[in-house]
């Protein structure tokens, strides 16, 4: 068994009036691409935020490379939320330079290569980018440095359908550094089906099903999309 990058034990997150996560237990193996699937409100984004260290859990333990969530884990985690969290007044280059100041091993040459691959111009102002272009920028930010954990929350939204698979393939197969663990959530399950090695289905704040993607497909004779429908029903 591979070493775990992420270990989550009995994770609970309560917001005022709602319980977003109800005792989640999870283990993400180092270097694996894991798909986090579930309907709206199932707790996916909350789980991402807790792993990224921007939201605190109500209860439970979360470890990244054996460390509790804090400054040290944020130093090895690339988090791209579902919303546009970029500064609209910055150009792409300025945004990348700003982030480069904080993350060890940030590779400007790789960032430029990725910018070119994504067909973006470094001098373009972020506020003037389309939704799809901003989604592409998220990938540039996520893969320009050798983080241990990449958290991609709905990264494909806004990207035109023909480009989705091409971008995902390039990121996972070409631009991913060795042993980088990726956790990705999306409603577009078919688009990531071929890339995910592990899969976790969240339903109503709980892990409904998890395991090796190939094993689950073989055992159940269903695609991940079909399994998601089954979980939701």
């Amino acid at each position: 068994m591979k070493m775990a990058t992420v270990e989550i034990n009995d994770l609970v997150k309560r917001y005022r009036g709602t319980q977003a996560l109800r005792g989640v237990n999870l283990r993400l193996e180092s270097g694996c691409v894991t798909g986090l699937l579930g309907e709206n409100g199932s707790g996916k984004s909350t789980l991402f935020r807790i792993l990224a260290g921007v939201t605190r859990p109500t209860r439970g333990q979360v470890l990244i490379d054996g460390l509790r969530i804090g400054v040290e884990t944020r130093r090895v985690t690339a988090y791209l939320p579902e919303v546009d969290a970029f500064y609209a007044w910055m150009s792409i280059e300025e945004q990348l330079e700003f982030l480069a100041s904080f993350y060890p091993g940030w590779d400007q040459a790789k960032a430029r290569e990725l910018t070119q691959f994504m067909k973006l111009k470094g001098e373009a102002r972020i506020g003037e980018l389309s939704k799809g272009q901003r989604a592409r920028l998220k990938f540039i930010v996520a893969f320009s440095w050798p983080s241990r954990l990449i958290l991609l929350d709905e990264p494909l939204g806004g990207i035109d359908p023909p480009s989705r698979a091409r971008i995902m393939r390039a990121m996972v197969q070409e631009f991913r550094a060795e042993e980088q663990t990726i956790l990705i959530s999306t409603h577009l399950v078919a688009e990531i089906e071929e890339f995910v090695e592990q899969v976790v289905f969240l339903h109503d704040g709980e892990v409904a099903l998890q395991g090796n993607a190939d094993t689950l497909r073989t055992d159940r004779g269903k695609s991940l999309s079909q399994m998601l429908e089954e979980v939701l029903s």
């Binding site: 260290g53 919303v83 500064y87 904080f102």
Partner: peptide
């Protein structure tokens, strides 16, 4: 308001 707090809070700084 601009939702950039996601970026700023995810930075590895206190």
């Amino acid at each position: 308001t601009a939702q950039t707090h996601y970026q700023i809070l995810a930075l590895p700084v206190p």
